[in-house]
Design a protein around this nucleic acid. Sequence first.
DNA 1: AAGACGAAAGTGGTTGA
DNA 2: TCAACAACTTTCGTCTT
Length: 316
Amino acid sequence: MSEKPSKEEGSKKEEKESVPCPPEAIVFDPERGEYICSTTGEVLEEKLVNQGPEWRAFTPEEKEKRARIGGPLSPTVHDRGLTTLIDWRDRDASGKKLEPKKRLEFLRYRKWQIRSRIQSSIDRNLAQAMNELNRISNQLHLNRAVREEAAIIYRKAVEKGLVRGRSIESVVAASVYVACRLKKLPRTLDEIAQHTRANRKEIARCYRLLVKELQIKVPIVDPIDYIPRMGSLLDLSGKTMNIAAKIVKVAKQKALTAGKDPTGLAAAAIYIATLLENERRTQKEIANIAGVTEVTVRNRYKELVSELNLDIPEEE
DNA sequence: AAGACGAAAGTGGTTGA
DNA sequence: TCAACAACTTTCGTCTT
């Protein structure tokens, strides 16, 4: 029955997969960790980890010089990835037994290492927190830049003693939230709360605390920042996303955005864009992705259409 | 049968005294 | 600390495709 797929269908599929973005148009945005089509603005692939070397090397000698010894420094490991281990075996590098005097010396070193690494309560806290951070980041598919930002924020919080009396989890979650917003890859509080034992309220409280105590200036969320992510989750074309972004921009100029939930606004703009581009998605689909209800999408949609004098084409 | 629309009552968070 | 308030949600009935 389904033995003969029509030719149209076959070519349509190809169109959808290869035509919208020629390979030479793909650019990598290292700050966001996303591959983006430079003609349509479509996000092709996010959640990438930067695998390149830390330094650029132009000549072979330089490359040699700049080769890394040990792992890369990373704030997402509690001791920043700097580990020097003193072996428990009483032998030197060539495997010979150490003289008794040396042995005692190394015994002392080991003791100090344990003291300095583990016994410090800050380090113990960080070790646990970085575990948690890595877990959350993986589940949210956050790129490395965001992770490291979150790690830095958390570290500062610990050093200021802000974690005392609060759960590590909630402070980590709040750090992640802040980092996402700073890096313009916003995730909603709900999204983050979903992967944590702490509830949204707790995280929100910690978030406010972090902002206040660490004097972080968090830019207000721009609905536009949500569009690429929501758009790719809805499998929209880059063109449609661009239109949605334009709608948001105009709406901002007309001061329609104040006090409105940015996710709802982004959702409505996307909904309108799908109508204009005949790439229809239901209100429900969009509302689900955006984490708001259909009603909110509808309300924003109605406002935008009337205030911006948009013509929604009738169904043909 | 599913989607779109709108009214009405309920909820959680912010603000200002 | 409390009440007022705006925005958003829930729920439900009706109309359209």
